[in-house]
Amino acid sequence: MYDTTYYRASSVSDATSKLAGTEDGKFLGGGQTLIPTMKQRLAAPSDLVDVSGIDALKNISVEGDTVTIGAACTHAQVAGSSEVAEAIPALASLANGIGDPAVRARGTIGGSIANNDPAADYPAGCLGLGATIVTDAREIPADEFFVGMFETALDEGEMVTAVKFPKATKAGYAKFPNPASRYAMVGVLAAQTANGVRVAVTGAGNDGVFRHAALEEALGANWSADATQGVSTDEGDMLADIHGSAEYRAHLVGVMAGRAVDNS
């Protein structure tokens, strides 16, 4: 790991002003992606501003039809939250399937979505449920937030502080894990929301998480696993690697969509 300077932020303003003064600093959440990347010498931030200890970012609250999850909430916290389980069970179940127990104890929702790993689960959760990402500067709809692989709409120095999830009428998540890494090879979140059916796919696409219009249409007409049969996914948009062809991933998108509906 390259040299770096560590700073533990006490508040959001402390964190953003600290980062602004660094040469090439990064926010550090639970570090479950950033630390391994630094260990592989693939990232060399001059400074790490640790936001995982900011108390204001560790709350989960439910107000009306909105579940707000602070950016520093760990996956374990979300998975174990009775409020989340009651309001949006699919989100609790998604969080409970991220990584392994030790990773869930450290990894945070803010870190996960700010990184926008194409195989991460939360991007599908946010996009599928139509969440709003709250930063220190503004609110960004998930539809605009996830730009591409490892790319988000966040500006330089902008920090995710919370994610607001609207309650869904029905929602389910189904994940086909990569056998080796256990990241999502295909993860599908399907939801009936106030704004219609939304289907988001992570892991499979060659440009990160995406919404699946054909599945949305099919499930909008008939909310059942059967409705996903015969809905095709363009192989040209799929990743291909030693774990599976684009054809296989495209096929799995349909299967996982059906299972997501079954899980809803």
Partner: peptide
């Protein structure tokens, strides 16, 4: 499966890819 590509680069070089 320990997999090399045709150029001799190891594709399964960590537990991310070697199952």
């Amino acid at each position: 499966h320990a997999v090399y590509d045709d150029d001799g680069q190891l594709l399964s070089g960590s537990y991310m890819d070697y199952c």
